[in-house]
Amino acid sequence: MSDAPVIPRPEPQYATAEQQAETASFGMWVFLATEVLFFGGMLLAYTWLRATYPDGVAEAGRHTKIVIGSVNTLVLLTSSFTMAWAVHAAEHGRRKALTRLLAVTAFLGLLFLGLKGYEYHKEWTEHLVPGLNFHEDSVHAQTIELFYFLYFLLTGIHGIHVTIGIGLIAVMAVRARRGAFNSHYYTPVEVTGLYWHFVDIVWIFLYPLIYLVGRSGP
């Protein structure tokens, strides 16, 4: 589309490019508010489960893969950092740095997904997948199954968000490489960043709720 570092004309419904930029960012924030409630429903279910069956949930929590979970948290926090750095680079019109940082962020996202996939695989071999191959001899078997039901839903839906995020970041990286952005126009990068940080925040809450449950117990 564009070949020189110019500011694209705003779409016809906007008066100015500035209006368009601020509108896009606000739109993303409203969307994130929707997302909060989307995850909120599952979190209420989780809270109910944990309050109703504290012992079972504690035992289930000790089945989770703490090392993978913690490394993944590290990976995602770092990716948020590189994303914020990328937006900073965009702000200052540093095209090369922007491209690289976006690539690193996308790579960290992929790493997260890879580790997550490995974790799912281990859980499958340990018969921890509810409805498909669940088998557990504990007295809390039923609670553990419910815990893992929510675990797969929460991490699965989070994983879908990560995948979408990686896709968006990859598109941004390609566009950045082609010089689509400059210090006056980088709204798409900024909005993608907002989304990515949100995905990170969701994980920040999932991490203790999934992996740190019952660790201080027997």
Binding site: A33, T34, L43, L194, F198
Partner: peptide, 30 residues
């Protein structure tokens, strides 16, 4: 993350309101 990565503390009031709305409604639910 909100304050420094997402620059919420420098954002317009409107943006902060949108962020707060999500949390407020989550609080209602709980």
């Amino acid at each position: 993350v909100l304050a420094l990565f997402m620059k919420l503390f420098r954002a317009p009031t409107l943006t902060r309101a949108a962020a707060a709305a999500g949390l407020f409604w989550l609080a209602i639910l709980f």
